[in-house]
Simulated scan of single mutants.
Amino acid sequence: MSVLQRPNARVEDAAILLAKEANALLDEHAMRRSLDALGAEALIRRGLRSNPERDGRILAELLFDELGFEGERDDYYNPYNSYLDKVMIRRRGIPISLSVLTMAVGERAGMDIEGVGFPGHFLVRVGGSDGVYQDPFHRGELLDGHGLRRLAAEFLGAEMALHPSYLEPVDCLTITIRMLANLKNAHRRQGDYARAMLACDHLVELTQAPEHRRDRGLLAHALRTYGAASEDLAAYLEARPDAKDAHIVSEALAEARQQADLVLH
């Protein structure tokens, strides 16, 4: 994804690229103009002087109270919840897509806003290391220590402590990888293996992780592109010979090779 190598690349750039891959008719310029307009409104409300808590409340009032953006609970795994253009139209999303929207608007308003890769539930931080944490999925709720511990108990288990690393900001590449993983899983759940495989292609390119090659190989197997499946599954087994799923992957590899031979003959 060359967009991530551009100087000053923003996470919205990757999100828009993924949306364009899924929708060739998407008007990128109109989408950015909409974000610009939201950012301009937030800037007007912010004025010349502000603080992190006030910035967070401005974003919450504008995006969630007035415009009605909110977390999608009834159809959480719908891929539309992961595409920024669909989120902006439907005003529904998952934590990371709503966070990307919030970041895009906040940045345009001159706010110091970052994505936070909280396990299982993406957040944003407004105002730097001394700022406030905000939960776009829950209508922009500002989270104090109690709220953060509640999230940790919900997503990690009551016995797990709130580790400081959970609250650290993450870079554009890390956010993009997490968005792609969500897309891969969402499309795979719907049986759309071709779109899931496209997300896997990006994940392999960005991470070179053997696990993503395994997933891409299994998707290629499901799509009956057995040559590509064989290459990826073999690469995974070479890199992870002692993996717990090595036996299952070996069976899939053997079948892919057999089917590829039949095609060649």
Results as ranks from 00 to 15, higher is better:
Asp65Ser: 14
Glu114Pro: 04
Glu41Phe: 08
Asp65His: 09
Ala152Leu: 04
Pro169Thr: 09
Gly106Met: 07
Glu70Gln: 09
Arg125Thr: 07
Arg125Phe: 03
Val87Phe: 09
Leu162Tyr: 02
Ile94Ala: 01
Asp65Thr: 11
Lys86Tyr: 10
Gly56His: 01
Phe118Lys: 03
Glu72Arg: 12
His121Asp: 08
Arg91Thr: 01
Glu168Ser: 10
Phe64Pro: 07
Arg57Val: 00
Gly71Asn: 04
Pro169Phe: 03
Tyr80Ile: 02
Lys86Arg: 15
Val132Trp: 04
Gly110Lys: 10
Pro95His: 12
His138Tyr: 12
Gly131Thr: 08
Arg46Gly: 06
Glu141Phe: 05
Ile94His: 13
Asp130Glu: 14
Gly106Lys: 04
Gly147Ile: 13
Leu98Asp: 04
Leu101Asp: 10
Ala40Glu: 13
Phe122Gln: 02
Asp74Tyr: 14
His146Gln: 11
Tyr83Leu: 15
Glu114Gly: 06
His146Arg: 13
Arg57Ile: 09
Phe137Leu: 07
Pro119Val: 11
Arg92Gln: 07
Arg139Tyr: 03
Tyr76Gly: 02
Tyr133Thr: 03
Tyr80Phe: 08
Asp135Ala: 12
Ile113Ala: 05
Phe64Asn: 07
Gly145Thr: 08
Gln134His: 00
Ala42Arg: 05
Gly115Ala: 15
Phe137Cys: 03
Gly106Tyr: 00
Arg90Ala: 09
Asn78Pro: 01
Ile58Trp: 08
Arg57Leu: 13
Arg108Cys: 08
Gly56Pro: 05
Gly128His: 14
Asp130Leu: 13
Met160Gly: 00
Gln134Val: 15
Gly157Tyr: 06
